[in-house]
């Protein structure tokens, strides 16, 4: 476990836990895309199928449980909680899931490490994670500006992806045969998706103005 990966996991943990705590505290999910949260819940469900099948490490198991619990809790809050659900911006969060789920599933059936259920589901979760943020970015685009709830969330997620790329570079040079094309390519695509958001986030932060995303 290298520092980049630990920092990446902690930032990723921070993004979901901070989001859950904020939604729980202010009883609002304004600016948050339920579609993205549902896609992330599917990412974790598809990737952590072997959670109880084979034990990697205590850290690994605990983190998987926390990610599953927090992502499903966020979806529950946004769909079921009597107060929070009223703050959900339904008419703007209209990105259709199937435009993301089906291509990822087809790609996972075509490109995977081994044509077994678990490997296909793993590849599916990797591809899905790469594009799961799209509904959130579209929602931010539509609502034009971004309150700090969604801003911090996307910012932490982007930081986690950038740290993971550093982790892969580090592991590539320090561990023989550490090659994971599927994760690497999907991870780079995912990080690029954040890049333009970062550009606007940092420029608005520097000019100390409300973040205005171009239409």
């Amino acid at each position: 476990m290298n520092l980049f990966r630990l920092a990446g996991d902690m930032t990723h943990l921070l993004s979901v836990v901070v989001l859950l705590l904020k939604i729980h505290t202010i009883k609002s999910c304004a600016g948050i895309s339920l579609k993205t949260q549902e896609l992330y819940a599917i990412v974790f469900a598809a990737r952590y199928l072997d959670l109880f099948v084979h034990f990697m490490s205590l850290y690994n198991t605990i983190m998987k449980l926390v990610f599953l619990a927090s992502s499903f809790s966020i979806v529950w809050y946004m769909r079921q909680h009597k107060i929070v659900r009223r703050t959900y911006d339904k008419e703007h969060d209209t990105f259709r899931h199937q435009f993301i789920l089906l291509p990822c599933l087809v790609l996972a059936l075509l490109i995977n490490e081994k044509f077994t259920f678990r490997e296909v589901m793993w590849a599916f979760s990797i591809y899905l994670e790469a594009v799961a943020i799209l509904p959130q970015l579209v929602l931010l685009q539509r609502t034009r500006n971004i309150d700090n709830l969604a801003g911090h969330y996307v910012f932490f997620l982007g930081a986690y992806r950038a740290l993971y790329i550093l982790n892969w570079i580090y592991r590539y040079f320090t561990e023989p045969h550490f090659v994971h094309w599927i994760s690497w390519i999907a991870g780079i695509v995912q990080t690029l998706l954040y890049a333009d958001f970062f550009y606007y986030y940092i420029t608005s932060w520097k000019n100390n103005v409300k973040l205005e995303l171009p239409a």
Binding site: D50, H54, H180, S183
Partner: peptide, 10 residues
């Protein structure tokens, strides 16, 4: 059987 490549990352 362990997955084809050791998947130790989250």
């Amino acid at each position: 059987d362990a997955p084809s490549t050791k998947k130790d990352e989250l």
